[in-house]
Nucleic acid binder design. Structure first.
Lengths: 239, 239
DNA sequence: CGGACTTTTGAAGTAATTCAAGGGGAGTGG
DNA sequence: CCACTCCCCTTGAATTACTTCAAAAGTCCG
């Protein structure tokens, strides 16, 4: 029944949502499947944009690297999300790299195929517009956060976003469902791993979070939301 | 001949590029024209996204404001660019405000009309995808700059981007073709007007720029490019 | 020529980085 | 099962790039 489940998965992705089953069958027929183990690279920054994937199972990380070795995390991608939007929007090369952070199972199309599909199915083009609009807005938000907020707030926002995107209820609180180092959080919040570590330690002290090696559990969502909003009473130099 | 020129203008916009003349005529027929004087507000943050404009003449500024009054500039929009992409991509409200910084002449459509147009003309939907992709990439770039670069570099990048977008050759160098305060540059670079002022003064000292009230002229593009790249020898505490 | 914006510049303050060093945890291989 | 090693994380202390505070000087416009 792999065929059936693939169709169901496609129907639930942000790109193929609402597309007629008949069309999905055609689209599925010209797709290919690919597995990546945790740590494997899907696209490398500046490579030609020759294909597009949707995540079926797993988790990917989109990053950008600067010549001097610094890196920022653009976003994480979970099931149903599109990896390689550049292939849709025409730019010749990938603006960043995409790596698997968990073992992942992707469904892919070549650049030509996906363009062909889009021009034949208006609904898919519309979905692409919605999807790109949402990402653009997400970036505007992050840019604003980075410009106007202090680190503690930014880290709080980053973690809240991650719980919204990949949160898993547990007895101790909401856990971010994939491995995540302090360095990763730093690269998402625009700070250093040291500052992230100090901040998490302070929060742990207050019982707001409960973290371990490559793991973050938010115990007190409300408290974290307050910190993110900047309304939390800031202890002078709490770090 | 206003009708003819409007068609030519539409044909040159990022959204209607490459669309058949017949279709452009229809699109033009359902559009409306609107003038805004410098300082007037086109969209207000959180207003319902009920229309979309393309800039025919003039210059707009897209901003986001935070409750405490701080503001950041998302981008400037010049002739041919789309204001109100949100209306395309389905979100209910505008994520930021758009203001005219010069007297401007816009061509507009209602949300329903533009969606109708898009679904009838695949080429336009494709243009929208290209346009949103480009903006998304621009935002990724700025996010990276803001995370990894120091202020001087960021200000340099901001000014370079502005000259690329709205630069005008003059005898003294490349001038940014619209009024721009130190505060504006600060809101684009993620810093304060004080730091921008100090930085510009230092550059003026070195003959790299030539600025005045609400005006910036880049005399030495190469020098500025070097600073932006971070390869320029940083005088310790040049500010 | 008054008044509202801009811009400049000095001095003080500070949030966060950088530097430095050590302490776990988890897997591996003997 | 223990030792070894590679990461990852933590925490103190020093430093600094930038902001904040403060005040004054231009500059444009009616």
């Amino acid at each position: 029944m792999e065929y059936q489940t693939d169709l169901i998965i496609l129907e639930r992705t942000e790109l193929f949502r609402g597309v007629a089953v008949q069309a999905l069958r055609e689209i599925h027929a010209v797709s290919y499947r690919k597995r990546f183990s945790a740590g494997e690279i899907i696209f490398r920054q500046d490579d030609a944009a020759a294909s597009l994937y949707v995540v079926s199972v797993g988790r990917l990380r989109a990053t950008q690297t600067v010549p001097d070795g610094q890196q920022i995390i653009i976003r994480y991608l979970g099931p149903g999300e599109v990896a390689g939007y550049t292939t849709l929007s025409g730019a010749a090369t990938h603006p960043g790299s995409i790596t698997a952070v968990d073992d992942s199972y992707l469904i892919g199309w070549s650049a030509d195929t996906i363009k062909q599909i889009m021009s034949e199915h208006t609904a898919i083009a519309m979905n692409a517009i919605v999807l790109l609009g949402a990402r653009y807005r997400e970036m505007q938000l992050r840019l604003r956060e980075l410009s106007t907020e202090r680190v503690e707030q930014r880290i709080a926002h980053t973690i809240l976003r991650l719980t919204a995107q990949a949160g898993r209820r547990t007895v101790r609180g909401v856990e971010i469902a994939f491995p995540l180092t302090r360095q990763d959080l730093a690269e998402m919040s625009g700070t250093t791993l040291h500052t992230v570590s100090r901040t998490l330690s302070a929060w742990e002290e207050e019982g707001i979070v409960d973290c371990g090696r490559r793991r973050v559990i938010v115990a007190e969502m409300d408290a974290l939301t307050l910190i993110a909003a900047g309304t939390s009473p800031r202890l002078p130099n709490r770090l």
